[in-house]
Each structure stands twice: as C-alpha cells, then as structure tokens.
C-alpha cells in the first residue's frame, strides 16, 4: 500500500470519527435493525442484536457429560456458569471439528450461550432489508428471514426460537445448574 493512500485512509478515518461527534443523533424516522454477521459451518448467517444480551469471544468452554448432543459444555460468563450450545449442531450441521471461538449470550434469566466459529462483523440494515423467505424456512427450521445487505444475503437466525428449542429439548431444566 502506498504512503499517500495510507495517509488518505487515516484522514478519512479521522474525518468520519470527527463527523460522528459533529452530526446530530439519528432520528427515529427510519427503522433499522442491528445484526451480527456470522458464519456457521461456512454458511453466512445473521443474528439480531436485540435478541441477545451479550457477545463473548475466546472464552474457555469446559465440557460436561450430558445427553444433550448440542451442549458443548459450560463457561464462566459475567460471574455465572452458563451452558454453551453449539449453534452449528442446533442448525443441523453437526458437531464442528474444534471448539468455536465466538458465542452470544441469550436470555437474562437462565442465560445460555450459543457458540459459533466465525464472526464477520456488525450490520445495521433498514428493517425493510429483512424479509421472510419461505423456502429458507422450509430448509432451515431456525431461520425465518433473510437480510439483504450490500455484501450479500444472509439468513437471520431466530434466536428466541433457538433458545426455546434448547429449552424444550432439555425439558425446561437447566442442565448446567443441575450438574
């Protein structure tokens, strides 16, 4: 990369940063949806930011014996022992080769963590960019919408549905706490 390009890039960053403080806060005229762009088993997915309570990276997961195939183990998050489930296994991809690095925390009470391998970035799309795709719903049980972004379309994972599925499978029990 040439030196003028680097300097212009830095100037743009500096300008954007200054502009963010100089501009007024955005109004509520346009509904937007904040999404986390992830990849599960190589496929692109999106998670609504409002459906999770936190995002954790690089946390150590302690495997525990369980009948639930989706349970990867437990991890200590924000002072609590939280069960960690493999999002790939839940979405039907099966167990991955290694422990997933990223996880999102779901639910304020009895939170559970959903782990995945790759985090692509943060997306803020207008709500109109999300639409229901029946074909996708037929193919993926826990993805009911598609988010069309500039970089491509992503299936939006219904986190409450996933959490409900986990809870249904575990019979409203809290496996980690039982253990």
């Amino acid at each position: 990369m040439n030196e003028p390009v680097i300097e212009s890039h830095a100037a743009e960053l500096r300008r954007a940063f200054d502009l963010s403080f100089a501009s007024p806060p955005p109004g509520a005229a346009q509904e937007v949806e904040d999404l986390l762009a992830i990849r599960v088993a190589g496929d692109c997915y999106a998670i609504r930011l409002r459906e999770i309570v936190g995002m954790i990276a690089g946390r150590r997961v302690i495997p525990v014996p369980s009948a639930a195939l989706d349970l990867l183990g437990v991890a200590g998050i924000r002072g609590e022992v939280v069960p960690v489930f493999g999002l790939a296994s839940i979405l039907g991809y099966g167990q991955g080769s290694g422990p997933p690095r990223w996880m999102v925390l779901c639910g304020t009470e009895d939170p559970i963590a959903l782990a995945f391998s790759d985090f692509d970035g943060y997306l803020r799309l207008p709500s109109s960019a999300l639409h229901v795709d029946e074909n996708l719903r037929a193919a993926r049980e826990h993805a009911n919408q598609v988010a069309s972004a500039e970089v491509g379309a992503r299936a939006v994972i219904n986190i409450p549905l996933v959490v409900a599925t986990i809870r249904n499978r575990s019979g409203h029990n809290r496996p980690a706490r039982e253990q």
């Binding site: 904040d34 986390l36 930011l49 995002m55 990276a57 943060y122």
Partner: peptide, 17 residues
C-alpha cells in the same frame, strides 16, 4: 480491536436495553 468491538457491541446491547 476485537475486544473493543465486542465491548462496543455489548455496549450497544446494553444501551438498547
């Protein structure tokens, strides 16, 4: 930067809440 990003995302979530 990644931690900052995560922190910002979590701050966003917390701010939304």
């Amino acid at each position: 930067a990644e931690q900052t990003n995560i922190l910002a995302i979590n701050a966003t979530i917390e701010a939304a809440g």
